[in-house]
Every structure is written in C-alpha cells, then in structure tokens.
Design a protein around this nucleic acid. Structure first.
Lengths: 347, 347
DNA sequence: ACCATGTCTGGGAACGTTTCCAAAAAGAGA
DNA sequence: TCTCTTTTTGGAAACGTTCCCAGACATGGT
C-alpha cells in the first residue's frame, strides 16, 4: 500500500504539501495540486485509517451492539442506523452477542469490543444489562445512547418507544372489533419492555370490563418456535377465545403457522394480532395486523443525540413518537359478539 | 483513555517492560509483572487498536460485503461468519450496499470502505460485480474470497454451492410427488446463480418427459412482494398447474401469503416449494418444503481459505457440499396425476 | 530599494504501540 | 574476586498521518 510519503516523493513535493492536498485543508498552488493529484491517482493512494485515528483520536466510527442478528427485529433498525451514519460521513461497526456466557456477559463483551475498536460513540440495544453495568460503562465511555430500553441512571441517553401506548392500542384494536375473549402470548417476563406492553394491554382490557383474571396467557421467548408451541397449547387447552395477542410479530408468525397446520382459519375462527410491525408481518399468511412501533423515529433521534455529543453538533432531538396500528387480514370483526367462537379440533 | 506510558509511569517501569506485560511476549520478573498488572487494572488500560494496527500492519479484522441487510438470506450467513471469526480471535466488519448508485457501484464503494478500514481480508457476497471489477480489486487487495458466486479469474478464491444439483433436486422432489404441471417463479435473469438453478430445474423436468415449453414461468426480484404478485398473476392466468417452484424462499413465502388470501389451499390444491432453506421457511403457513443449500459448509470453507491466505494457516479447505431437501407441509403428493387441479376463483 | 503582507512550501513533532538493541543486574563457575 | 552467561530492563526507532512553525517566494505600496 502506498503511503503519503510515496505520493510526496513521486510528485516531487514535501510531506506537508502532499498532506494538504489529501486533506483539502490549507492552500496549494494549482500546479502543485495537479502534480500531487496525479501521483495519488498513479499510486492509487488511500490514507491509512489507522494512522488518522491514532493522530486525531477520532475514528469516525459508531459502534452498535445488538444481541442477535437473526430474526426480523434488529436488522431493519441496523439498516436505518447504517443509512443515517453514512449520510453523516460516518461508519457503523456492529457487535453481536456471542460466546459462552449468558446474555448479560455477552453484552458486556460485545460492548468492550466496540470500545476497544475505538468507536467514537456507542448505540446499545439490550435490555439485559443492569444499571450497575451501565454505571461501569459510563465510567469508561461516556458517549453512548440506548435504544428501546431506559436505564434510570442515564435516562437522558435512552430512546424508547411508548410500549404503554402500544399495548393499549393492541387492546383497543381487538375491543373495537368486538373481541372480548382474548388469549395472550407474552414475551419473557425478564424484559421490561415486554412487561410494559402486556400490562398496558391487560389494563386496557380491564378498563373495558374484560375479566383478565380468567384470560388465557402464556409466556414465550419472542421466537417463531415459541409462538408455534404457544398456539398449540392454546388450541389443546380448548380455552374459548376469539382473538390472540402476541407480544411480538415473530411469535405471531409462528402462531399463524400452527393455526394453518391445525386447520384453524385466521381470522374467521380466530383473529391474531402482533406487535412491532417487522417485515415478517407483511407477507405472512394471512398478513398480520400489528402495532406499528415508531422504530425509525426512535432510532433517528437516538442517532442525532449521539452525534451531538460525539461531534458537537446541533441536530434536533425529540421524544415521544406516534404509535399506529397496521391493519391487515389477520384481524376481523367478531360477527356475533355474545356467542363463543366455534372451533374445530385440529386435523 | 490511559496509554501504556501512563501504565509504565504508575508502575515505575520502562515503556518496554510495560509493553512486554501487555503483549505477554518477552521475559519479565514476577515482581515487575505484578506491579504492571496492578497499574493496568487501576487505570483500566486497554491498548489502542489503531496504534497496534498502524505498527503491525494487521488489523485482525475481516471485512464482509453483503448487498442488503434486510431479508432472511444474508443474516444467517453473517452469523456463521461472526462466530467463526470470533473463535479465531478475529473480528468482523460488515458493509452493506448503500447510496445512490446502482448495485454494482454500491458494491464497489462498500468494498472500498472495507479496504480503507484496513481489513486483513475480505469476504464478498455479490453477484453484480464484473470480472473487470474483480481484476481491479485484486490489484489492490489480494486477500479475499467470494461466496455464492464464481468469478473465472479467481475461481480458486470462490466458494459456491451446487445450484445445478439444487435445481435438479427441486425438480426431483416435485416429480417424485407426482407433479408434472408446474409453474416457476424465477429470480432475476441477471443473476447467474438464479439462472443455473432454474435451468437445472427445467432440464430435469425435460429429462422426465415434461414439456417445459408450455410451462408457466415468470421472473421476480427474490422479494416476498415479488412472490406475492407472481402468485396472483399465476392464479389470474388460470394456467393449470399442481405445483409451484419459487427460486428462493422469500418469494415462496410471499406466494404462500397470496394463496392464503385467495383461498387456495396449500398443499391440497397447489404444492409450493422454495429454495435456500432460510429461517423464514420454517414457520411459514404452511411450513415450506425447500431445497436445503449448504450455506454453512460453503461459508466455513470460504473462511478457512481466507484465513489461510491472511495468516499463513493450514486450515482444511474442501469443495463440493451436499444438497438436501427439507420436506415440510407445503408439498403433497398429487392424488390423481392425470386430472388437472381444480381451483377456485380468488375471493 | 525597502519593507509589509500575503501565499505557498518543507519538515519536525506527535499520536500509542511493538520491536529491537544495548546495558544493567543477577547468577554461576572457577 | 573475576569472568562468562543469562535474565531483566529502559529507551530509541518505526508505523502513516496531520498540525504547526518557519522559511521561501511573490506582490504591492511607499
């Protein structure tokens, strides 16, 4: 790889002059400019990123931690981040959870990797860290934002969507369509964002006179396989219900797969709604009605806040983003509200 | 951030000694070792990656280029790469296609970014580059492998799966289940790997006496939306057929979504098979029969070859990986082979 | 001719490591 | 005690950049 010294030598100029041409700062005579440009082209010179980072202390790199790459939840957000950062002339480095330890240990290690790599700022998507981890982290690396989870100690650097509103809207959508016998597949009880949405969902049902005490509810791990097994368990239980709320789209997709297999017709026999509005909801069979969470707005504002703190910018940062419902075929109005839904035994 | 100078000063030793402790190379007396270790812990010292890279010329980083992050195709492969690299003590940096230019321009830019970043080696997943781009690239950066596509000029650095066999197996699966009236949704004609699998599929049908001249075939862009619209077009055409082959799983999932919507029962009225065996196939409705391509084997061998060339290793590299069928509910045997399938008009 | 005011240029210093090399210290054998 | 080896140590050099400073050179006003 050619260095700037080679460029300077070939162009017959000094180091400083060559550097001025490369960086575009400082004045250079037109004749020299042309000479150096030619040398750069001839040698296919590209400045060493490592050297620049070492000298300037800034890597122009933002690190992103996500727990897993698979699934349909994180990748769209990653895509948004990458686009925004590129537009700002920055680059994204991603770390995933990996290794032997538990989710918390993986997160700590992944984040350590990003710091070590010299990232100017960090974007963290994890809800398994404890406040104390954040405390230790803040000591090492101040410039970071957290997406989709709020840590009390750094609430100002956390950007979340309104899961209370999301849960409530899911309930409203079902109630508005006449459903009152509703089953729920919740996510892990250890994840605060899951708890918030499910609690809000149940609260809204109660506020409308639904007895949530006798409602069928189970907990799964946010995976399609979990949704599938939960759906099977629900059907096997023969618990009467006309609608199913899944706390994320992936579980809803898994549930739809089971219902098709079992011969349960969605939405005619059973309505299903999801949560998140990930790409997997758009072409499921049937297409999934789901709570559209403002991931894009959350992400963009988080990035803006981070860049402000990293590079002394004044990008606008707002909080509180609208939650909407994406209505698709998996939700239908209950024709006869009072009568329990008839269901077939799985084929 | 503390530097090794701070460590040396705090421990009361010279720079070289501190460095020896950090890198673990060279002999240090037990007493000094303890002192330096303590200083490192106290200052929470972490060696600067940039400085190491600058000095050694090796970044311990492997760059991966993929065209898009969304969808279910690339992420599992990315996950495999990340796991393998971590196990080897290396790190992965990913670049996606982004920006204004076409796919080819995006790939060139993304790869340029990876080179600039100082990656020791490159893993490229793209079939839009031309041989001449590879030629230009090879001039700049020799250490690279290409996955899922073969460039003649660097065939030894390309790792692919056998799409001829894959296409043939898809055909065999349908023929074995009695299907002879088969529709096809191909991928983009510009992508060689698509062409190979579809040609092999058709060839196998012909070899078994199916007249592929009058077979219904359309071309889409590998997306679920494309699969959906192709399925609709097929139904609207009222072309008689008992099975549909989609050239990838994403299109198959989109097609399944349409069939559900239109009231076409899969597999009873129409069998559907996909290609790739991505995670999206596992919990579709119905679950998708698909050609399981050996992505893991391909990826691992590609990584091995790359690491051999980057770090003078002797990891085993093989070629030619088994292709299998993953049989799921979307494929059923044709009960009455001679009789055309009855179909309803979409609701 | 002289000085003031620019514009342009070249090279040293610094960034944080590791890798040398030489020197100091410590044993070991006589 | 002296010499010869071995272990341990400290610091200079280098990696490729950018920034700064000083100097060269031109321009223009007196």
């Amino acid at each position: 790889m050619a260095t700037i010294k080679d460029v300077a030598r070939l162009a017959g100029v000094g180091l400083g002059t060559a550097s001025r041409v490369v960086s575009g700062k400082g004045s250079v005579s037109p004749a020299t400019l042309a000479k150096v440009r030619a040398a750069i082209a001839q040698l296919d010179f590209r400045p060493s990123h490592a050297a620049r980072t070492l000298l300037s202390g800034s890597s122009q790199m933002i690190g992103v931690y996500i727990p897993v790459l698979s699934g349909t939840f994180y990748t769209p957000i990653l895509q948004i981040i990458d686009n925004e950062l590129r537009a700002a002339g920055l680059h994204m480095v991603v770390a995933f959870g990996a290794g032997l330890g538990g989710a918390r240990q993986q997160a700590i290690e992944g984040i350590a990797f990003l710091i070590e790599r010299g990232c100017d700022g960090l974007i963290l998507m994890t809800n398994v860290l404890q406040e104390e981890d954040i405390g230790a982290l803040r000591f090492k690396h101040e410039r970071m934002v957290v997406l989709n989870h709020s840590f009390d100690t750094i609430a100002g650097q956390c950007f979340t969507v309104d899961h209370t509103l999301g849960g409530r809207m899911a309930a409203r959508a079902l109630l508005d369509h006449g459903h009152r016998q509703i089953a729920v597949v919740a996510g892990p009880a250890s994840l605060p964002d899951n708890v918030v949405r499910v609690d809000a969902f149940l609260a809204e049902l109660r506020a409308n006179g639904v007895d949530t005490g006798q409602l069928w509810l189970t907990e799964r791990d946010f995976s399609p396989a979990g949704g599938w097994s939960a759906a099977k368990e629900l059907m096997d239980s023969r618990h009467p219900c006309s609608a199913l709320f899944c706390a994320n789209d992936e579980m809803a997709v898994g549930a739809l797969s089971y219902f098709q297999e079992a011969g349960i017709r969605v939405p005619h026999q059973l309505s299903v709604i999801g949560y998140d509005d990930t790409p997997s909801a758009e072409f499921s069979a049937p297409r999934l009605t789901t709570v559209h969470m403002p991931w894009r707005e959350m992400t963009q504002n988080g990035i803006n806040a981070l860049l402000n703190s990293c590079y002394d910018l004044r990008r606008p940062v707002t909080r509180g983003y609208p939650v909407t419902m994406t209505l698709r075929a998996s939700l239908a109005a209950l024709a006869a509200p009072a009568k329990p839904t008839r269901r077939r035994k799985p084929a």
